[in-house]
Amino acid sequence: MAENGTRHCDVLVVGSGAGGLATAIVARKAGLEVLVVEKEPVFGGTTAYSGGILWIPGNHLAKARGIEDSREAARTYMRGEAGNHFDEARVEAFLENGPRMLEFFERETEVKFALADYPDYHPDRNGGVAIGRSVSALPYDARRLGPEMRRLRKPLETITFLGMMFNSAIADFIAIEGS
């Protein structure tokens, strides 16, 4: 910190939710100096409340389980769901980079994902699927954070089991690993 109380960084991230922390990790991995600021005394953003399910068409986890999907189907589904708000350039960027993002985080960090057995919101619509696009981060031993563990936002009690967030992706992982 400079004498006048200012800090210099290459990237300033406002908010410590999944999006903010993902941005910080990618920037740091690229060699940039990153500063994350958070208004709350805890970090984790609303991801601690939502369960952190990601919707990523064409992901490697679905492919590994033999689940068929295509960019064309995902694009068709998104066009139908978004209606007049469909933004082709953004959709194409998402369809191209969403799967790459999952692979990056599994390769470059300790985060691991599992396929969540959730359908699209409207799986019967054109391009919709019954399974394969939703993924969830697997449990992480927060004790590895040391004293920073106490600064994690607590999840909602309604989505926890024995103090851990619980969803179908975790149940599926436990079932697969246990068999």
Results as ranks from 00 to 15, higher is better:
residue 9 C to H: 05
residue 79 R to C: 10
residue 147 P to H: 14
residue 101 M to Y: 05
residue 128 G to Q: 07
residue 131 I to P: 00
residue 96 E to R: 14
residue 111 V to P: 00
residue 143 R to L: 09
residue 177 E to A: 15
residue 102 L to Y: 03
residue 79 R to L: 11
residue 78 M to L: 15
residue 117 D to V: 02
residue 117 D to W: 08
residue 142 A to E: 13
residue 167 N to I: 02
residue 12 L to V: 09
residue 8 H to P: 05
residue 73 A to E: 15
residue 7 R to E: 14
residue 33 E to R: 15
residue 140 Y to G: 06
residue 156 L to E: 09
residue 179 S to P: 00
residue 123 P to N: 05
residue 83 G to F: 06
residue 174 I to P: 00
residue 26 V to C: 06
residue 29 K to V: 04
residue 42 V to R: 15
residue 174 I to L: 12
residue 60 H to K: 10
residue 54 L to M: 13
residue 14 V to N: 06
residue 102 L to Q: 04
residue 147 P to G: 10
residue 90 R to F: 08
residue 163 G to D: 03
residue 21 L to P: 01
residue 31 G to N: 09
residue 42 V to S: 14
residue 1 M to G: 13
residue 146 G to R: 10
residue 85 H to K: 13
residue 140 Y to I: 11
residue 94 F to T: 06
residue 108 E to W: 01
residue 130 A to G: 03
residue 151 R to K: 14
residue 78 M to Y: 13
residue 24 A to E: 02
residue 132 G to T: 06
residue 92 E to D: 15
residue 7 R to G: 07
residue 124 D to H: 13
residue 75 R to L: 13
residue 170 I to L: 06
residue 138 L to D: 05
residue 152 L to F: 11
residue 145 L to H: 09
residue 25 I to D: 02
residue 168 S to W: 00
residue 7 R to F: 12
residue 9 C to M: 08
residue 24 A to C: 05
residue 52 G to Q: 09
residue 139 P to L: 06
residue 156 L to P: 00
residue 135 V to R: 02
residue 151 R to F: 09
residue 32 L to H: 04
residue 136 S to W: 00
residue 89 A to Y: 08
residue 140 Y to M: 11
residue 149 M to W: 00
residue 18 A to H: 07
residue 164 M to C: 08
residue 132 G to V: 02
residue 96 E to C: 07
residue 83 G to Y: 06
residue 100 R to A: 15
residue 159 I to R: 11
residue 176 I to S: 09
residue 99 P to R: 07
residue 94 F to I: 05
residue 147 P to D: 15
residue 80 G to H: 10
residue 62 A to C: 08
residue 137 A to I: 04
residue 60 H to T: 06
residue 26 V to K: 07
residue 17 G to S: 02
residue 125 R to P: 00
residue 150 R to F: 02
residue 153 R to T: 09
residue 90 R to M: 13
residue 94 F to K: 02
residue 179 S to W: 01
residue 83 G to H: 07
residue 4 N to H: 13
residue 107 R to Q: 11
residue 137 A to S: 10
residue 8 H to L: 15
residue 42 V to M: 13
residue 4 N to G: 12
residue 148 E to Y: 13
residue 124 D to E: 15
residue 141 D to P: 03
residue 142 A to C: 08
residue 177 E to S: 14
residue 99 P to H: 11
residue 44 G to N: 07
residue 69 D to V: 06
residue 87 D to V: 13
residue 106 E to Y: 02
residue 23 T to A: 15
residue 69 D to R: 08
residue 59 N to I: 03
residue 157 E to K: 12
residue 56 I to H: 01
residue 107 R to S: 11
residue 34 V to H: 05
residue 169 A to R: 01
residue 121 Y to G: 10
residue 144 R to Q: 14
residue 131 I to D: 06
residue 171 A to G: 07
residue 1 M to Q: 07
residue 122 H to N: 13
residue 25 I to Q: 01
residue 113 F to E: 03
residue 69 D to M: 15
residue 76 T to Y: 04
residue 93 A to H: 07
residue 114 A to H: 03
residue 9 C to A: 14
residue 157 E to Y: 05
residue 93 A to I: 04
residue 89 A to N: 11
residue 102 L to H: 03
residue 70 S to Q: 10
residue 73 A to M: 12
residue 153 R to C: 03
residue 99 P to W: 07
residue 127 G to I: 07
residue 94 F to R: 04
residue 175 A to W: 08
residue 75 R to P: 00
residue 76 T to L: 15
residue 35 L to Y: 03
residue 61 L to M: 08
residue 55 W to R: 09
residue 1 M to V: 11
